[in-house]
Nucleic acid binder design. Structure first.
Length: 305
DNA sequence: GTCATATGTGGAG
DNA sequence: TCCACCTATGACC
């Protein structure tokens, strides 16, 4: 279920469960056995997300090593999941279910300075299962930096600069609906946030980037900066404003596989929550696109703005 | 049971 | 622009 919010949430959860603890790493399904062998027994320092990329930092091997492969680069692809579990100390870690490509289990056997290894802490039982991911590689800091450098600004990162994205958008004739999905323009937005933020900002998905005023882009960015942290907090994508919510309108709450309340994503043919027109759909660059042709007109009246 | 579909990306033609 | 990749799920027979 991976748009940027999923990865940032995951980085947070992995940090809470594993930071400062030694991890046993295995690859029950075998696909990432080589990575697992290199990771096993090292201390997990922390985890960080950048767009849809996740980097788990490990203590160097040997400890203090600066140039080694200290980062696990994970990309979940379309169907990957990474489930983090905790349970009271002493709880039994269950056997893997399904195709687990990488499993982390916190190992406190040598915590509390009982030997001469790096200081580690003891904590609750913790394990995490990675399934379906397309990338799980050990990389150096330089390789991590190279991946990060290819990405546009991430609305979930406080230091992100929206002007960097706008420089790409204003020079492109490609539709804004395509540019939003281009991770080198903007990092972390996927198919749900794309559809929803364009709806909320009344922008037609096919509007060329080079026709977008800076103010419209800033509004779009600000909307993402407001929405995506909610996704991190809740683990779902909810984009419907209070006045259009099920409670406010009396309609039935929506519950589908991403769980959130949305305006147009996967609502083809259903009435727009604002104007009642049937939600339209089309395929853009191989991905399903959804919008309301009344709320998101092709030509926007500049006189009224 | 079979099949289509999915919040993604990269590569071939 | 299509296709492959990977797993899980829901629709339908």
């Amino acid at each position: 279920m991976p748009e940027g919010h999923t990865l940032h949430r995951l980085a947070r959860d992995l940090g809470v469960a594993f930071a400062g603890r030694r991890v046993r790493v295995s690859s029950p399904q075998g696909r990432f056995a080589a990575s697992a062998a290199l990771l096993d027994g090292r201390v997990l320092v922390g985890a960080e997300a950048w767009g849809k990329q996740l980097f788990v930092e490990l203590e160097g091997d040997p400890p203090g090593e600066l140039d080694g492969e200290r980062f696990v680069h994970v990309h979940l692809g379309l169907i990957g999941t990474f489930d983090v579990h905790t349970a009271p100390a002493g709880a039994v870690v269950p056997d893997p279910v399904g195709q687990v490509r990488l499993r982390l289990v916190a190992d406190d056997a040598d915590a509390d300075g009982t030997d001469d290894d790096a200081a580690t802490t003891a904590g609750p039982t913790a394990w995490a299962d990675l399934r379906g991911a397309i990338v799980c590689d050990l990389v150096t800091a330089a390789q991590r930096d190279a991946v990060v450098a290819r990405m546009g600004p991430d609305p979930l990162r406080p230091d992100a600069d929206p002007d960097r994205a706008f420089e790409a958008i204003r020079r492109s004739r490609k539709p804004i609906g395509a540019l939003l999905m281009d991770q080198s323009v903007l990092a972390g937005v996927g198919n749900v946030y794309r559809a929803e933020v364009l709806f909320r900002d009344r922008l037609h998905p096919l509007r060329p980037g080079n026709t977008l005023q800076r103010s419209r882009w800033q509004a779009l960015w600000d909307d993402l900066v407001a929405l995506m942290p909610q996704g991190v907090a809740t683990g779902r994508i909810d984009t419907v404003r209070p006045e259009h919510s099920p409670v406010a309108t009396g309609r039935a709450p929506r519950r589908d596989d991403h769980g959130g309340e949305v305006y147009v994503y996967r609502r083809t043919g259903q009435p727009c929550l604002v104007c009642g027109r049937r939600v339209a759909t089309a395929v853009l660059e191989g991905r399903n696109l959804f919008w309301c042709s009344r709320c998101q007109p092709v030509f926007r009246s500049r006189a009224v703005g």
